[in-house]
């Protein structure tokens, strides 16, 4: 029992990130509502950033910003994952913006946000 608790507590962030990834992925894939899909997308992306940030962080160390002389290497964390998270956030903001723009256009045209209802309307119009 103690071993299980140790295992979970030492991988807490990663475990949470993977669960969140699953929630986001499923929502984006299966939920018919476009706004909920976009939420799912954001949860999915954020979970990856949590994963990256957790991997790049070590308790008791600080960011490698040198103000009063360089300390030994062990007192700093790796800054690259943080940089990747920032880049990733920019990317996910842009795709979210594009998705929201498409959602607005679809709502103006069909007056609904459900993908399956829109599909039915398109099928009816096609005939």
């Amino acid at each position: 029992m103690q071993a299980v608790i140790d295992y979970i507590s030492s991988n807490l962030f990663e475990g949470v990130a993977i669960i969140l990834f699953g929630i986001g992925f499923t929502t984006l894939f299966l939920h018919p509502n476009l706004i909920k899909k976009i939420m799912g997308l954001n949860i999915m992306d954020s979970s990856v950033y949590l994963f990256l940030a957790a991997k790049g962080f070590v308790f008791g160390r600080k960011a490698p910003i040198v103000t009063d002389g360089v300390a030994e290497m062990e007192s700093y964390i790796n800054p690259i994952p943080t940089g990747l998270v920032l880049t990733g956030i920019v990317v996910s903001v842009s795709v979210t913006a594009v998705m929201l723009a498409l959602t607005i256009r679809l709502y103006w045209r069909y007056h609904t946000l459900e993908m399956d209802e829109i599909m039915q309307i398109i099928r009816k119009e096609g005939k």
Binding site: L28, L102, L106
Partner: peptide
């Protein structure tokens, strides 16, 4: 717009993975 949204959703699933 519908096709584009559908494409975007599938594509974003791929990007997430």
């Amino acid at each position: 717009y519908f096709s584009s949204a559908k494409y975007m959703i599938m594509s974003l699933l791929g990007s997430g993975l």
